[in-house]
Design a protein around this nucleic acid. Structure first.
Lengths: 207, 207
DNA sequence: GTCTATAACTGGATAGAC
DNA sequence: GTCTATCCAGTTATAGAC
């Protein structure tokens, strides 16, 4: 039952990190939730920190793969200057879908991803940066071509503000019963709202 | 020396919460930093939780007073429909100035205020809501008159997105030496950037 | 691989002497 | 008001039996 124990630990950690946040979740709570022994975490992962990185990677890895895929599709569909609205939608959709999945699951909320952005321990910070880099490397040149009238330095700052919004959407995600921050439970509506709000700011002339 | 002890505890707590975050700061660390006895926190505040609320109130209270003052000034200056840019500037300026002060002080960063937004314990969440309510009550009607073409429900959501940006500015504030997220160390420039980015999104037609 | 038992800490809180 | 001493709950981690 070695693989099973490992999987149960990961599942339990995802549930507890999601509801209570990383810092508030002890190894013992995880093993209790998983129904396995305390020592199993150290045996299978080497300690609490390694388990955390494993869990983060399992969430963010697929998210970013989807982002790259959607960006490719947007380029195919729209040709050279991809409209900024399409770029934004490709960038934001995976996040909204993930929040939606987490809200719908038995898990209460999905704030721990937001916390990974806003209050990273140094180790987590390095990890998050390394995950985001390939996305920015793909998205940024496309944004530059879509918005040639905005200076790249200004655009870089504005992209960080977009990321800031997404971050807080994670950090303040509500449970399934309560009303969604973006007003509707439908992901398409949420996406349309976000793009409508963010695209004009990205495209605004430099101050 | 009773008042002195109390003041020293508050000062030490502000320093430590600012650098390490609230959850990571123990009562014992605070009393060590303050050079007072462990029991003093319980004597003067009744416990760790009450101390935290005191510290939060000292930071956020003046911030919101300034916000209300600036909103009043904007109304005086511009007359009935205050332009959305002026409203945004009045709302955002106190935050940017506070971040700037905290960056310049001996304190490394000011992330703990961001954390109070994004990962509040239930008690802190209630406290933060009660602090924000009078601001929203003053700002929202002004926004509605400035942007009559946007439905109030839509506007409410967009205002939350604006707050999300501010939140993350706090949560990810950089130390004094490192480059500022908003590109410049000058608060006026930062404010102009933020308003330029956020105002068009607030004013956009409903999707 | 899994468990018990325990070491070695750190946390908040408080009783009681001063 | 301030201190010491102490309690007790909870944490990571690991040694060693099974």
């Amino acid at each position: 039952m070695t693989d099973d124990t490992r999987a149960r630990i990961i599942a339990a950690a995802e549930r507890l990190f999601a509801t209570g946040g990383e810092e508030a979740t002890s190894t013992r709570a995880i093993t209790r939730e998983a129904g396995v022994n305390v020592a199993a975490v150290h045996y299978h992962f080497g300690g609490r920190g390694e388990l955390l990185k494993t869990v983060l990677d399992r969430q963010i890895g697929p998210l970013n793969e989807q982002r790259l895929r959607l960006l490719d599709q947007a380029v195919e569909r729209h040709g050279d200057p991809v409209p900024v609205e399409a770029l934004l939608a490709a960038f934001l959709r995976p996040d909204l879908e993930l929040i939606d999945r987490l809200r719908a699951s038995e898990v209460q909320v999905a704030r721990f991803l937001g916390r990974a952005y806003t209050q990273p321990s140094p180790a987590v910070a390095r990890f998050m940066d390394s995950q985001f880099e390939p996305i920015a490397g793909r998205l940024f040149p496309l944004l530059e071509r879509a918005l040639p009238h905005v200076e790249p330095a200004e655009l870089r700052i504005r992209l960080n503000l977009v990321v800031a919004v997404v971050t807080t959407l994670f950090a303040t995600a509500t449970p399934a019963g309560e009303p969604h921050q973006l007003g509707s439970d439908d992901v398409e509506t949420q996406l349309a709202r976000l793009v409508t709000f963010l695209a004009p700011g990205l495209a605004a002339p430099s101050p």
